[in-house]
Computed example of a mutant assay.
Amino acid sequence: MTDRALLSQQFLEAAAWGKAQRRFLAGDASDRSYDRLTKGGETAVLMDAPPGKGDDPADFLAIAAHLSALGLSAPRCLAKDLTNGFLLLEDLGDGVFARLLEADPSLENSLYSAATEVLAQLQRHAPAENLPNLSAADWAEAACFALEWYRFAITGDRIDSAAFKAALTEVITIHADGPRVMILRDFHAENLIYLPQRQGLERVGLLDFQLAQLGQPGYDLVSLLQDARRDVSRETEADMMRRFIALTGETEIGFRPKYATLGAQRALRILGIFARLCLQGGKPGYLPLIPRVWSQLQCNLQAPELSKLATICEKLLPAPTPEALHHIGLQCASFR
């Protein structure tokens, strides 16, 4: 038994869940993982978030408390060991949006409508305290991952990213640098649980929100509708944009450039992250997702307001052809 496994078992013993059956539930791009525990007729979820890896369980608890106070469904904490990075959480079940939609695509509009209403509720209220607040230049810097990892993985060269960063900083400053709201960052179908036994906004269970920060109103909507892991129909994307605009008081003419800007920034960052997860993290499973993210980037860059950025991206970023993706895969785990 590893030291981590021993620590988790000791935590569960202290929480009276030591004899529960334990089954791996999920992991993600971070070092965090989840196990489902079964004890008699009860279930719970063990979150294992190793200290010093960027995901602080204390942040999870603080954000969960804020969301619950707004009438939203974050998992209740049943036991905690913040020193070693363990939480025992309420099990919200298996109604993950992504799985439900895979089984029945006709649910897309109703599920995404519920999720969009949750975003509007979150943004009607003041954000949680002490959240990070990045500048336009910080957001642009994060998108430079597209050059530092994605381009590098294909071409093998390092280039000066100053012009790229300046162009993105400019477009973010003009179109997406207004009043901040609380954003959850990874608000998408893998992190949303349908809870039909609950009422209203509580029907949407929320996960993976510990890295919440201040950001633009459209960011989480982009995360939801331009999902790196699944295709969202154009009709649903358009419907949810209209719904969000109506719920938040935005105007369509003002919101669309913001949405495209945030979508471009997010897609650029994700291209870099997925390439880095392969090259540095030894996780090639993210490579098949890159063409979808590339397509989302191209769609966002069609906005007239992003023409300068589009020209720079066309010049600097190679397309993810099958040959390019194969080349990235050959370098998997070469840069640990």
Rank of each mutant, 00 (worst) to 15 (best):
L224N: 05
G263C: 06
R242G: 07
R229I: 09
R230F: 02
A246D: 14
A228G: 08
P257F: 00
E237M: 12
L224I: 11
R242S: 10
S233K: 10
S223T: 12
S233H: 08
L224H: 07
D220Q: 07
G254F: 00
A260M: 06
L247K: 05
I245T: 06
I253M: 04
G249D: 04
M241V: 11
L221M: 13
L247D: 07
S223Q: 04
F244P: 08
R234C: 12
R234A: 15
P257D: 00
R229L: 09
Y259M: 14
Q216N: 07
R243W: 02
S233L: 12
M241Y: 01
A238Q: 14
R242D: 15
I245W: 02
G254H: 01
T251A: 13
M240I: 12
D220C: 07
T251K: 13
Q226I: 06
A238D: 14
D231V: 13
D227L: 10
S233R: 09
V232G: 03
R256N: 01
S233N: 10
R230H: 05
L224G: 05
L247W: 03
R229P: 09
E235G: 05
L221G: 07
T236H: 08
T236C: 15
M240G: 10
T251D: 12
R230P: 06
A238V: 10
D227P: 11
E252I: 08
P257G: 00
D239V: 12
P217N: 04
P217F: 00
F255T: 00
K258E: 02
S223A: 15
L262K: 00
D227H: 11
A228D: 05
Q216A: 13
G254R: 02
G249W: 11
A246V: 06
R229W: 07
R243N: 05
M241T: 13
L225V: 11
T261W: 01
M241C: 14
E237C: 10
G218N: 02
Q216E: 14
L221N: 08
G218F: 00
T248R: 15
V222D: 02
L225G: 05
T236E: 03
A260T: 04
R242K: 13
L224Q: 12
A238L: 14
T236K: 07
F255Y: 14
R242W: 02
I253R: 03
E237G: 06
I245Q: 03
T261P: 05
Y219D: 04
E250I: 03
T236Y: 03
R234L: 14
P257S: 03
D227Q: 10
D227A: 12
G263K: 00
